[in-house]
């Protein structure tokens, strides 16, 4: 069952300060309403993963990693690789996170990222069949939130996209007689084929104002959120409204505009972060 959450308690003084500043077009950390915090992306952060990225967005820290395994395709897509996305809000990341299986927030986040990658066909899964109809690559994308200071969806999307961009496919041996596939993880056969980059821009409604990239205090004050997935070509590839409050048509229009304006910067940050690994593999970072 999905239950109305208890709202985080923000000291009245702090809440008033945030709202008064927003009325003047300012934020408590001196940013504009449409401005992201500093983004740090470290690609290839976890050596044993086939691809990984650590993202620090202000004081929010997340880690995404990719492992590749050989498995069976879905019956309705026998020649395509399979993407499986999971997210965990580890208890180390916030006093409000508890150990245990992913809650509805973690599941929602993972499913937003899954859809944002799947629908615009970010990964060229049609190139990931090993033995058509029998053996394909299974892409496990796992996301861990390490420290929660707001805007987890965007931070996790940045980490996921960068991790996929930097994923190397291990070499394999296929036994011609038995059809058995052995993975040789110490060797690589190239990068995971990526057709286009996507990012999410989550717009939060605080009072009557719309902001991007809130910190944890601002997020606690927000009443609604619209996460907008934008492709590198400026198409809308996913939407998800959340929160206890509504949005008007005008607010949605403004949120889309904020997303389209902010997405190019985020996509550039991903491209930059994955540049070295993609160059090393002999593929330029522009395309797939």
């Amino acid at each position: 069952m999905s239950v109305t959450p208890e709202l985080p308690i923000i000291p009245k003084l702090k809440a008033n300060a945030i709202l008064n500043l927003l009325a003047r077009g300012q934020r408590i950390d001196k940013r504009r309403l449409d401005e992201y915090r500093e983004i740090t992306i470290k690609t290839g952060y976890v050596p044993n993963a086939e691809g990984s990225a650590y993202v620090k967005l202000g004081n929010t820290q997340v880690l995404a990693g990719v492992k590749l395994e050989v498995g069976q395709p879905y019956a309705d897509a026998p020649n395509e690789g399979v993407l499986i996305v999971n997210a965990e809000f580890i208890p180390a990341a916030s006093p409000s996170f508890e150990p245990g299986p992913p809650d509805e927030n973690a599941i929602e986040l993972a499913r937003i990222i899954d859809r944002s990658l799947r629908e615009p066909r970010v990964i060229e899964t049609n190139k990931l069949a090993i033995i058509p109809g029998k053996k394909v690559w299974i892409i496990w994308l796992d996301i861990y939130v390490l420290d929660h200071d707001g805007n987890l969806i965007d931070a996790c999307m940045l980490a996921s996209m960068t991790a996929l961009m930097s994923t190397r496919i291990p070499a394999i041996d296929v036994n011609k007689e038995t059809g058995e596939v052995t993975i040789k993880r110490e060797e690589t056969q190239g990068l995971l084929p990526i057709s286009r980059l996507v990012t999410t821009v989550s717009v939060y409604k605080i009072g009557n104002y719309l902001v991007v990239d809130p910190n944890q205090e601002e997020e606690a004050l927000s009443s609604a959120r619209l996460s907008i997935t934008v492709t590198e070509e400026g198409l809308i590839a996913g939407l998800q409204k959340a929160g206890l409050d509504h949005l008007t048509e005008t607010e949605i229009e403004k949120a889309i505009e904020l997303a389209l304006n902010n997405a190019p910067k985020l996509i550039t940050a991903i491209r930059e972060a994955a540049k070295d690994i993609r160059a090393k593999e002999g593929i330029n970072s522009e395309g797939g």
């Binding site: 492709t231 809308i236 998800q240 409204k241």
Partner: peptide, 8 residues
Amino acid sequence: LQLNGVLT
């Protein structure tokens, strides 16, 4: 409001 797919 949700969107599953790609729109201009």
